[in-house]
């Protein structure tokens, strides 16, 4: 007989009903819900503060106050005379009234870069990607020997096998945020801690994936080469590696992508990169900046995925 709903689902349904029923009679909860703005209202509130995303940077030029008239041109000339050289093509000097609502009020000169904040975010994102790439390289370097030792058909005895598998599990078990915090104590707040945290954590993944693939690879070719009398390193290179390599490249691609995402978050614990900027912007309530940062991260992840996809197609014929 086929049962559609097991006893588990019946219990779950009952519990749900009790909860719903209970809350229906809970007057205080009712009032609380009535007072709380709805989810859409809250999202709208956030979007109103975060949109439009911040693109420009404007820096007040103190000594230009009260120049009046054509102070924009003068300020530019003054800057050039002071040895700052010609302004970069993307920058300009702009005078803005002190009181935004009153056009006749005294004005101030600003050094404005229309895409300055985006440029800053992209710079930080590149630093973050660098962190992710180094983390991935470290993960590769650690995971290949570890995978070799934790594949039951290539390892040296049960002790080495268990140790290698244990290492991979341990590395996977510690969240990279915690790992980064601990490493920051050792190496100070900076990219070193972030890179090591990413590398160690993802080496656990790569090590396990590669080891499992080595164990599951077609035994026939491996046995054929083993029966020529070759040692296991040569058999690994000639029979097992060609079989698992395409998959391994795919894993590495995923890990790189993942590391970029994680590196963005890792900044929050103080290892630098775009995450730190995100945290500052968030803590200051500058949600337009937060929005810009989020867009940059999103665009990076999309571009990176396309890029690595292309690379992969080249590598694996």
């Amino acid at each position: 007989m086929q049962r559609r709903f097991g006893p588990g689902s019946a219990t779950l349904l009952l519990a749900l009903l009790v909860l719903l029923g209970g809350s229906f009679y809970n007057q205080r909860l009712h009032e609380a819900i009535a007072d709380t703005p709805s989810a859409t209202e809250r999202a709208g509130e956030f979007l109103a503060r975060a949109w439009p995303p911040k693109a420009e940077t404007a820096q007040r030029i103190e000594r230009m106050v009260q120049l009046g008239g054509d102070d924009e041109a003068r300020a530019t000339r003054a800057l050039e005379r002071d040895g700052a050289g010609p302004l970069p093509w993307s920058a300009r000097i702009e005078s803005r009234p002190l009181l935004p609502d009153d056009a006749d009020s005294a004005s101030e000169a600003f050094y404005v870069r229309p895409a300055g904040y985006i440029e800053r975010c992209i710079g930080l994102m590149i630093a973050t990607i660098e962190m992710a790439i180094w983390g991935t390289i470290i993960a590769l370097l650690i995971s290949i020997p570890v995978a070799f030792l934790s594949a039951s058909n290539y390892s040296f005895g049960i002790v080495v096998y268990t140790l290698a598998r244990g290492f991979s599990s341990l590395m996977r078990a510690i969240p990279e945020l915690i790992l980064a915090l601990v490493l920051a104590l050792m190496y100070g707040f900076g990219p070193t801690a972030g890179i090591l945290a990413l590398g160690l954590h993802t080496s656990g993944f790569l090590g396990k994936f590669l080891a499992d693939d080595l164990e599951n690879a077609d035994r026939g070719p491996q046995e054929a080469l083993r029966s020529t009398g070759a040692n296991r390193l040569k058999v690994l290179r000639m029979a097992a590696l060609p079989q698992v390599l395409p998959q391994y490249v795919a894993y590495t691609q995923y890990i790189l992508e993942r590391n970029v995402r994680t590196a963005s978050v890792l900044g929050i614990v103080g290892v630098g990169g775009i995450g730190l900027e995100l945290k500052f912007a968030y803590d200051n309530g500058e949600f337009d900046k937060v929005m810009t940062i989020l867009i940059v991260i999103f665009a990076t992840v999309v571009v990176l995925e396309q890029g690595t996809q292309l690379l992969r197609r080249r590598l694996i014929r």
């Binding site: 077609d218 026939g220 070719p221 046995e223 054929a224 060609p242 079989q243």
Partner: peptide, 11 residues
């Protein structure tokens, strides 16, 4: 040795 399934390395 020669095997029934050839056991060549596919890639």
């Amino acid at each position: 040795m020669i095997h029934q399934q050839f056991n060549l390395v596919p890639r």
